[in-house]
Amino acid sequence: MAEKTDWEMKAANLLKAELKRKGVTYAQLVEKLGEIGIVEREANIRNKLSRGKFTAAFMLACLEAVGSADLRI
């Protein structure tokens, strides 16, 4: 299995931290994404975040879904 690059790790950690700050579980994220018209499964989200392989569009959708207006980088 290929290792995560530094950038993939940073992106995944940033998104995980934001979910933690907002108190949103992966199951809740699935529901919130559904509310904005994005269909995902909890297992898919878990895999994306554990691998660190997801698009910027996915990250932005997640941030929008949980109501994040600011990011700490």
Score class of each variant (00 low, 15 high):
E8Q: 15
A27H: 07
E40L: 10
W7H: 03
I36T: 02
A56C: 10
K53Q: 14
V66E: 04
I38F: 01
E31P: 06
M9K: 09
K16C: 03
T5H: 01
I73T: 09
I45Y: 00
A56N: 01
E42T: 12
D6H: 08
K20L: 03
M9S: 12
R51P: 03
S68T: 10
M1I: 07
G23P: 06
L49D: 04
L15D: 05
A69S: 12
R72T: 14
T55P: 01
A61F: 04
W7R: 05
S68K: 14
K48V: 00
A2D: 05
Q28L: 12
A2P: 12
M59S: 14
T5S: 13
G37D: 00
K10H: 07
C62L: 02
A17L: 07
E8T: 00
L60V: 12
G52V: 11
N44M: 12
S50Q: 02
V30E: 13
T55I: 02
E3L: 03
L63Q: 15
F58D: 13
L15I: 15
K48C: 02
R41N: 14
M59T: 12
E18H: 11
A11Q: 11
A56E: 05
I73L: 15
L19P: 11
I36A: 02
A27R: 12
N13C: 04
L63C: 14
A12N: 09
M1G: 13
K4I: 03
T25G: 08
I45L: 15
A69I: 04
E40S: 07
T5A: 00
V30P: 01
K4C: 01
V39M: 09
R51I: 00
E42C: 06
G37Q: 02
E3C: 02
A2T: 07
S68E: 15
S68V: 15
I45N: 09
T5L: 06
L15C: 07
A65K: 08
E35N: 13
E35M: 05
N47K: 09
E64A: 13
C62I: 01
M9V: 05
L15V: 15
A27F: 05
K16H: 05
V66W: 12
R51N: 13
N13Y: 02
A12T: 11
F54C: 01
E31L: 10
V24S: 14
T25V: 09
K22E: 11
E40A: 04
K48T: 00
I38C: 04
F58S: 03
E35K: 15
L33W: 00
A57C: 00
A56T: 02
G34Y: 08
G52F: 09
E3Y: 05
L60E: 08
A56Y: 03
E31N: 11
L14K: 14
K16R: 15
A43P: 00
K32S: 09
G52A: 09
K48I: 01
K10C: 04
V24L: 01
E64N: 14
G34P: 06
A69G: 06
C62Y: 10
R41L: 10
